[in-house]
Structures are given as structure tokens and as C-alpha cells.
């Protein structure tokens, strides 16, 4: 087994753009669930919307700033469409409706009727030009050890992690303020907050929009190193983001970031080890495809154990557990 390679790949995941995208999406979900108590099981939809609303205008020739604005505006509109009917509902209904809405948008972009816009099941590609064009890094390969990347890969990483940091700062500023107090109050008991004269519905909507825009921007980062494929936006994606958020601690600033890093490093490690073991014949009964599936079994089991035994996550305060209901 090539341990150097296995660890190299795993370490590389720490700063990979995918990790940054998941971290950002988890920060947004943390605003929803961790701070406001909204059971959003449709975070994948925000990533999807960010991805398509960025890629489609870009492919139509729009400059990058327009494409980014389009992604943000579309996610705000989607948050409103999602929020208006659901934010009055009981928490568990909200979960079902958000997961359903996420599936609806996925079905819609996959439908063959929209092939000209969305590429249907094939998705979209060839939208990286505008982002690459504003890359200030000269061509070449940079870095050391496992962190050797070309100028584009570095550019994606730098932008991605900068956005993660900005989002974290924003969340920090919001949550230490009276605004944050109101949404945390809503998480605990919205009727009580209502009885104190706060427009609960409006705060929930603000929270949904903020977390949703973060998800949408995460959607852009997510596709910059790859193509847009509708199959990536299943409920599975939402559940991974949940796992990451709960891993780090739902109502914490650094939780989602560290959660995303751990998640991807561990996934990469298990993949490397399982594949290595299969190649060396130690796991003769398993194919490499099956090894890929074992990792998802582990994700499921890890999610269960985490929620049962450490619901506050790694960083969460034991007293401030992440579940009030």
C-alpha cells in the first residue's frame, strides 16, 4: 500500500475547493438550523441554484459579476418561494417540505424539456473561462508536498476559502448582536419570541435567505473545479452537509469548517486504505466499487453515532446541545 500517496491525498482534502464548498454550505445550514432552529433539509437546492444560476448566464456570455449576482438573486428568490409557505409550519413539516422542494428543483433541471438551458441529465460544462480570466496568479505549478497545484487550482482554493472566512465573520458578527439573540430565541421557542413583539416570520425569512445565499455561493465554488451534474444534488448532498454541520457543532463558528475538513479527510483516507487493501488482495471479497459504498455506510453509521452520543458536535458546548426538540 502506498501510504505516502494515501495520506497525501487525504491531507490535500483539507484545503480542497470541495471541502471549502461543503464548509460554506454547512455554515449556511448552521445559520438555519444551529442558530434559528429551521429544519432545512433542502440545502442541496441552494447549491444547485447557485451552480445553475452561475453557469447558465456564463455560458450565455455574461461577465462573471453578473453570473455571481444571478446566483445570489436566484437563491434569494428561491428562499422566498420556499419560506413563504413553509416558515409558518411546524418544524417537522418544514423538514418534509424543504426536502420535497429540493427534489422538485432537481427534477426540473433534469427534465429533458429544458435540455437547451440545463443540459438535462448531462448537466453543463465549459463555464470556467470567466473565472479563470480574472486569475491574477501567473501560469505554473506552485506549492509543496501534497499541496502542488496549478494556477487555476490555487485560484479556486484561495477564492473558496476567502469566502468561507468572510461567511464565518459575518455569522460571528450577526450572532453576537441582538439580531442573533432574536433568532436564537426563535430556535428555543418561537411563540415566546412572538409574545415579546418580534416579527418571527420575518426573522426566519432573513435567516433562510442568509443561509441560502451561503449555500448558493458554495454551489459556485463546488462547480468551479468540475462540471454541473444534476445527479450531484440529491438529498444525499443535503445529508452530507448535515453530517458536517453536526460533526463540528451546529451553533459554532468554526464547527462547520473543521467538520468539513474532517469529513473529507476521513472519506479520502478510508477510500485510500480500502482501495489499497483491495489491490494488495487483503479484501478479496470486495470490489473497488463496493469499497466506495462502504464509505457511505460508514457515513450513515457515523451520523447516527454522532447524533446519539455527541449531539453538540466537536466544538459545541455540552450545555448548549444542538437539539431543543
Amino acid at each position: 500500500m502506498d501510504w505516502g500517496n494515501i495520506f497525501g491525498n487525504a491531507i490535500g482534502e483539507i484545503i480542497s475547493p470541495t471541502t471549502a464548498a461543503y464548509a460554506l454550505a454547512a455554515i449556511g445550514l448552521g445559520v438555519h438550523f444551529g442558530y434559528t432552529g429551521l429544519l432545512n433539509f433542502g440545502q442541496a437546492a441552494f447549491l444547485l441554484i447557485g451552480a445553475y444560476a452561475f453557469a447558465i448566464p456564463t455560458l450565455a456570455g455574461a461577465p462573471i459579476i453578473v453570473a455571481v449576482l444571478s446566483a445570489i438573486i436566484c437563491s434569494v428568490i428561491f428562499a422566498f418561494i420556499l419560506g413563504i409557505p413553509t416558515l409558518r409550519l411546524r418544524a417537522d413539516y418544514l423538514a418534509i417540505v424543504t426536502i420535497a422542494s429540493a427534489e422538485v428543483v432537481r427534477y426540473v433541471v433534469t427534465t429533458t424539456g429544458l435540455t437547451d438551458f440545463t443540459g438535462a441529465a448531462n448537466g453543463l460544462s465549459g463555464f470556467k473561462g470567466t473565472f479563470a480570466a480574472i486569475n491574477p496568479i501567473p501560469e505554473g505549478r506552485y506549492g509543496f508536498g501534497p499541496f502542488m497545484y496549478n494556477e487555476y487550482d490555487w485560484w479556486v482554493r484561495i477564492v473558496g476559502w476567502t469566502l468561507v472566512v468572510l461567511a464565518s465573520v459575518l455569522v460571528f458578527l450577526l450572532m453576537r448582536s441582538p439580531w442573533g439573540r432574536v433568532v436564537k430565541g426563535i430556535r428555543e421557542d418561537e411563540d415566546a419570541v412572538r409574545s415579546l413583539g418580534k416579527n418571527v416570520y420575518s426573522y426566519k425569512m432573513q435567516s433562510l435567505v442568509i443561509g441560502g445565499v451561503m449555500g448558493s455561493v458554495a454551489g459556485i465554488i463546488f462547480i468551479l473545479p468540475r462540471a454541473v451534474q444534476p445527479a450531484n444534488y440529491t438529498t444525499g448532498l443535503t445529508f452530507f452537509i448535515w453530517t458536517i454541520m453536526l460533526l463540528g457543532g451546529a451553533a459554532t463558528i468554526f464547527g462547520p469548517i473543521v467538520g468539513a475538513m474532517i469529513f473529507w479527510v476521513v472519506l479520502s483516507l478510508t477510500q485510500g486504505i480500502l482501495y489499497g487493501a483491495i489491490e494488495s488482495g487483503a479484501l478479496g471479497f470486495m470490489t473497488t466499487t463496493q469499497a466506495g459504498q462502504v464509505r457511505f455506510i460508514l457515513v450513515g453509521v457515523a451520523l447516527m453515532l454522532l447524533v446519539i452520543f455527541r449531539p453538540q458536535g466537536i466544538f459545541g458546548n455540552k450545555k448548549e446541545l444542538s437539539f431543543s426538540v
Binding site: 439573540r181 436564537k184 430565541g185 430556535r187 428555543e188 421557542d189 411563540d191 415566546a192 419570541v193 409574545s195 450545555k319 448548549e320 446541545l321 431543543s324
Partner: peptide, 10 residues
């Protein structure tokens, strides 16, 4: 409220 609604984690 009759059944108290204190905000436990504040």
C-alpha cells in the same frame, strides 16, 4: 404562558 416558555439555551 401557562406552560413556561423560557428560552433554555439563552
Amino acid at each position: 404562558f401557562q406552560l413556561t416558555k423560557s428560552l433554555g439555551r439563552l
